[in-house]
Every structure is written in structure tokens, then in C-alpha cells.
Computed example of a mutant assay.
Amino acid sequence: MTTISINGKIQEATCEQELSAIRDSLEILGGKWKLRIMRHLNSREGKRNTFKKIQREIEGISAKMLSKELQDLEINLLVSRTVLDTRPVTVAYAMTEYGCSVLPVTDTLVEWGLNHRQKIKS
């Protein structure tokens, strides 16, 4: 069981609350691209992450899908968008402080994925 704070009181989350939390998390982070985009932005922290660079470096993502996913991540306060004063106009993206709270989840997924790949191969 997971502990949660409700009105300042620490309580154990019910199974229903845990399942709702998983649903909420998957609605925000689910799909093929969002976690990959966030992992990519984190790996290039401190570098200029323009739309075109992100699209080039995340294999297989279309411009339309990248745009949609970045908008969703921005709406959920996980990614920030900065319009740069260039000609033509360039837009850069970065992880927000809140977005960085997702990184332990991606670390765990990477570790599990690497271990799973090894297990399946052997």
C-alpha cells in the first residue's frame, strides 16, 4: 500500500485510489512517445532542444505527432516551450522542475527494459 496525504492527514491509499492514480499517470504519460521525448530532453539538458533537433533525434516520430505530444506535455507542466528571437522563429523545449519528477519512473523503466531484453535473449 502507498501512503497519501488527505487534508494534512497521512493515510494508506485504497486499492481504488491506487488504480485511479495509475490511470491518471498513464493518461498523462502513456503512449509511444511522451516518455521517450522527456528522456531525450533530459539527456540533452543544457543544450538547445529545438523542434527540428528533437524530431531528427527521436527516430520514427512525425512532426505532427511530436507537436501534439509536446503540447500535451506543456499543458501538463512537464515541458516548457520558449520562442527564440531568431529568423526564422525557432522554438526550444526543456524539462520543467516538475517534469523532472518523472525521471525516476523513466530510470526504472529503462532498467526494467534492459533486464527484460537480456532475459528474453537468453
Rank of each mutant, 00 (worst) to 15 (best):
I75P: 00
E74G: 05
D107Y: 11
L29C: 07
M95T: 04
K52I: 14
K47D: 15
T3H: 00
A92E: 11
I37C: 12
L114S: 08
K68S: 05
E97R: 15
Y98N: 09
N76F: 13
A13M: 01
Q71H: 13
K64S: 15
A94T: 02
G31D: 05
G30D: 08
E74A: 10
N115W: 05
R23I: 10
L84E: 11
L35Y: 08
S20E: 15
E57Y: 04
R23G: 06
E111A: 15
A21N: 04
T86D: 13
V110Q: 15
E12W: 08
Q17E: 07
L35D: 07
N115D: 10
Q118N: 11
E27G: 12
E74K: 09
E97C: 11
S122T: 12
K121F: 02
D107G: 05
V102L: 09
S25C: 13
K68C: 02
I22P: 00
R87C: 05
V91L: 06
L103I: 10
T82F: 07
E57R: 01
I75C: 05
D107F: 07
K119Y: 11
L66T: 05
S62C: 06
P88T: 00
L35R: 09
G46L: 09
V91G: 05
I4N: 04
L78R: 00
V105S: 04
E97G: 14
G31Q: 06
G30V: 03
R81Q: 10
W112V: 12
L19G: 03
E16G: 07
D85K: 07
Q17S: 00
P104Q: 03
N115E: 08
C100V: 03
L109V: 01
N42V: 02
E27I: 08
L70Q: 00
Y98S: 06
C100E: 14
T96S: 01
I6R: 11
V79T: 00
C100P: 02
T96I: 07
G8D: 02
I6F: 02
S122C: 09
R81I: 00
R23W: 12
I37K: 10
I6P: 01
N76I: 12
N49F: 01
S25T: 14
Q11V: 13
C15L: 09
E18T: 07
E59Q: 12
E69R: 07
E18H: 04
V89Q: 15
D24W: 04
M95C: 11
S20Q: 15
Y93V: 00
V91D: 02
K52W: 11
I10C: 05
L66W: 14
R87S: 09
A13I: 00
K34A: 01
G60E: 09
R39T: 02
I75H: 06
L109D: 07
E57S: 03
N42T: 02
